[in-house]
């Protein structure tokens, strides 16, 4: 009898191993194992999360078309006259290997209200945006993104090309339709009012899985981990990034001019490269 029970145990354990194996795939869906509570602990030190519906919005396509380049827009929603200010916004892609995609710090005088960038999405996932306000509280909102099908992957597309662009920086300002353009006279120096601009940084953003051709060793992750943008000497926006930011990091944002004549950017990557560039602010606002 003891022997037979042991046989049954063996079969049972074999079966449970097989069943456990079969269960691995569904576990990839967020419902099966929600990592968010753990992420609140790891990233936010378990601070209370308040409903952020009136504070911040997050926009992403429901389906990630290209796993390597998924557009995301963060928009602050504090009404004019609210005495609170958004200090920082953290973007978390729950099911990515490195969930903390980016932490944005908003310059005290720049009134940044919108930030768009592009991220890698590995899986079906919740994506959280957490705003920290000047009242010292955290406000959270979230969306859900389906992973892309097909052959796209959250990796560098053309590895050699990306290497060639390393450290190139571009700044561009956009006309912002219907926002105070009429009030801006020409020839009066840099216009005040809301502007929209974009910074592009050439960087391969290796996620660390690529194998070196010659040595056959896996090379470590290599990405932009810090970006700071100023108008003259006043901080507009800073970003701490991770490997979830797409290659050639691209940040498009709104800000209010303080009348500065220069726009400056400084980026650092995980190998300690520092990339700096500055541009004259075009007073046309375009």
């Amino acid at each position: 009898m003891p022997g037979r029970r042991f046989h049954l145990l063996c079969i049972a354990s074999l079966l449970s191993v097989m069943l456990a194996g079969a269960r691995v795939a569904p576990a990839a869906t967020p419902e099966a194992n929600d990592p968010w509570p753990g992420l609140v602990q790891d990233i936010f030190n378990n601070r209370p999360m308040n409903d952020g519906a009136d504070v911040i919005a997050i926009e992403m396509p429901y389906r990630a078309e290209d796993a390597a380049i998924v557009p995301v827009t963060l928009r602050t929603k504090l009404p004019p006259g609210d005495s609170r200010r958004v200090l920082r916004i953290t973007l978390v892609i729950d099911q990515n290997p490195a969930p903390m995609a980016a932490k944005f710090e908003l310059g005290p005088d720049a009134n940044v209200t919108e930030i768009s960038t592009r991220v890698r999405v590995n899986n079906y996932t919740d994506v959280h945006a957490v705003a920290e306000l000047s009242d010292g509280k955290l406000y959270m909102t979230k969306t859900y993104v389906k992973a892309s099908g097909g052959c796209s992957a959250p990796a560098t597309k053309v590895a050699d090309e990306a290497k060639n662009r390393l450290g190139q920086m571009r700044y561009r300002q956009f006309a912002r339709a219907g926002e105070g353009r009429a009030g801006q006279g020409s020839g009066q120096g840099p216009a005040s009012g809301t502007r929209e601009a974009q910074i592009m940084i050439g960087h391969p953003s290796h996620s660390g899985l690529q194998m070196d051709q010659v040595t056959q060793l896996y090379i470590p992750a290599f990405f932009v981990d810090q970006l700071r943008l100023w108008q003259d000497d006043s901080l507009v926006l800073a970003m701490e990034g991770g490997i979830s930011i797409s290659e050639d990091p691209n940040i498009r944002f709104t800000y209010v001019s303080n009348g500065a004549t220069r726009f400056r950017a400084e980026a650092r990557d995980t190998e300690g490269h520092v990339f700096q560039k500055e541009w004259k602010v075009d007073d046309s606002g375009i």
């Binding site: 990839a28 590995n122 899986n123 099908g149 990796a155």
Partner: peptide, 12 residues
């Protein structure tokens, strides 16, 4: 670079 992701994604 892509293999592990492909295996996971297509298992799904």
């Amino acid at each position: 670079a892509r293999g592990p992701f492909y295996l996971d994604a297509f298992r799904r």
